[in-house]
Amino acid sequence: MGQIRFMVVSGFLGAGKTTTMIALGEYLKEHYGETAIIANDLGANLVDTNLTQTSGCVVAEIANGCICYQMDNVVDQLRRLRDKDGAVFVMSDIPGCGVGALDHVYHTLANDYSDEFLLSPFTVIVDPERLRMIMPEKADINLPEELVYLLQLQLEEADLVVLNKCDLLSEADIQRYVDFLKTAVPDIPVLCISARERTGIEELAQYVTKNTTQLKNFSVRNNHEFEQAEAKLTWYNRRMFFKTLSGDKIDMNAVVDDLIEEIRMGLIERKRNVPHLKTFATSGNGDFNKASLIGVDYDVEYEQEFLRPHKNMRMIVNARAVCESRPMARIVDDAVDAVCDKYELDCQVFFTECFGMADEGR
Rank of each mutant, 00 (worst) to 15 (best):
E26G: 08
L233K: 05
F306M: 12
M91F: 09
Q348H: 09
K342L: 07
K216M: 09
I134V: 14
K232P: 06
I260D: 05
E227S: 05
A321C: 14
R320V: 14
T199K: 07
I94A: 11
L28D: 03
M328S: 06
N142P: 01
V58A: 10
E137L: 05
V90N: 05
L259G: 02
L46K: 00
R272F: 00
D248L: 12
G266L: 08
Y27A: 04
N111G: 04
Q206G: 14
V349D: 10
E225T: 10
A36F: 00
V296A: 09
E157M: 07
I94G: 02
K182G: 03
Y113E: 03
Q228Y: 03
L13Y: 07
A205Y: 09
E203K: 15
T19Y: 06
G25V: 05
S219V: 11
M1P: 15
I94Q: 01
A110E: 15
L118S: 15
A101T: 13
G14W: 04
R176Q: 12
M91N: 05
A23Y: 02
D299C: 07
E344S: 14
G14M: 07
I331H: 09
G266E: 13
E303R: 01
A63Y: 00
V317Q: 01
N50Y: 11
F242H: 03
K232D: 11
L151N: 08
K243A: 14
N73A: 12
K290N: 05
S170Y: 07
L169P: 02
A110Y: 13
I331N: 08
N222W: 10
T213E: 14
I38R: 04
E116N: 00
Y302G: 07
S114K: 12
L118P: 00
D248F: 09
